[in-house]
């Protein structure tokens, strides 16, 4: 048994809007094991990014964690004071890289200043030493001629290079957990391959655990050990990556995998999931997926299904009601 490094329990995140209060994340629980990669996959509005922002305590002003616990190394960070979290957890034990490094980097600070800032803050080193560490980390993330790059501003770098800088910044404090939110979505395919490769390499060098948030199932197939599929703020299926791909159980997971065009030969029509993801203000009653579900039953319209065990997977769907029930989120 590997050690659990991050444990999220019954996490709910609420957003206040003009139209009312809505649950962007609805009672989710999961664990991340040491040196594993856990992928959270979902479409827009699934709550996958909100989950990662909630862990990093970076929620927008109108959002808050309404219930739940987040354990990092068996300590509930939601019970800590904000200064404790700032100094001992964020940046130190957990780092995050974002989809668009241009908006995550400060445009008026040189690369070097941005990296050394966090080294000085978290490791209490002097300026000179921090500079050396920064240079060394830039080398490790594969930035050519780091001595010059460290003096440049973010706009002088390409998208791929900026993402490498982001990764370097996330790594300087040797975090145990790295949260990567769509880190390759804005990149070209050849650069995406480079960055995924880099993340894999660094994971084994630094023994980091990775929470990888993405909409791209192909990326999931390449990097994940375990997968969580989210829909409308809920986890609807989870399991080891091979099981999820070869034997998906939830109708939504099945549909998602089927709609992806493959490289194999076939023309004609792609399988589809009917309709679209409902907006947060217009979620249906019962199982959130039922209006789009080809297997919907009467009770799916009014009741939220519990979570049932199927092989190595957990599935939130009434189709598996006969199986062992893991937990009942039914409301």
């Amino acid at each position: 048994m590997s050690k659990t490094i991050l444990r999220v329990e019954d996490l709910s995140v609420r957003f206040r809007t003009e139209e009312g209060v809505f649950n962007a994340v609805d009672n989710i629980s999961f664990t991340l094991e040491e040196q594993k990669t856990l992928a959270i996959v979902g479409e827009s509005g699934s709550g996958k990014s909100v989950t990662s922002l909630a862990i990093m305590q970076l929620l927008a002003e109108n959002g808050h964690i309404s219930s739940g616990e987040i354990y990092v190394d068996d300590e509930n960070i939601l019970n800590m004071s904000s200064s404790q979290v700032q100094h001992n957890i964020l940046g130190k034990k957990i780092s995050m890289i974002f989809q668009e490094p241009m908006t995550a980097l400060n445009p008026i600070l040189k690369i070097g200043d941005q990296i050394t800032e966090s080294i000085i803050e978290h490791q209490g080193t002097g300026k000179k030493e921090a500079y050396e560490i920064a240079l060394d980390t830039l080398k490790q993330v594969g930035i050519p001629s780091p001595e010059q790059r460290i003096k440049q501003f973010p706009h002088e770098l390409s998208g791929g290079m900026r993402q490498r800088v982001m990764i370097a910044m996330a790594l300087v404090t040797r975090p145990k957990i790295m949260i990567a939110d769509e880190p390759t979505t804005a990149l070209d395919v050849t650069i995406e391959a480079q960055i995924l490769n880099l993340i894999e390499q660094l994971k084994s060098t630094f023994k980091t655990s990775i929470l990888f948030v993405t909409h791209d199932l192909n990326v999931v197939a390449d990097i994940a050990d375990d997968v969580i599929v989210m829909y409308c703020g809920q986890i609807i299926e989870r399991g080891p990556v091979v099981d999820i791909f070869e034997n998906p159980q939830h109708p939504y997971t099945k549909g998602l995998l089927a709609t992806m065009p493959t490289l194999e030969d076939h023309k004609g029509e792609l399988p589809t999931i009917q309709g679209g993801v409902p907006s947060i203000t217009q979620r249906p009653g019962g199982c959130y997926f039922h209006p789009r579900c080809p297997h919907r039953m009467k009770k799916c319209e009014t009741q939220s299904p519990g979570v049932y065990t199927v092989g190595q997977q957990q599935v939130k769907c009434f189709l598996f009601e006969g199986n062992k029930e893991e937990r009942n989120d039914g409301k």
Binding site: A193, D222, M260
Partner: peptide, 21 residues
């Protein structure tokens, strides 16, 4: 070569094209 095969059992090394445009 740099596209993922989308198969977790067959994680072939992606072809890594060095450098940038």
């Amino acid at each position: 070569g740099s596209i993922s095969k989308g198969n977790p059992r067959n994680r072939q090394e992606r072809v890594i094209l060095e450098g940038e445009i």
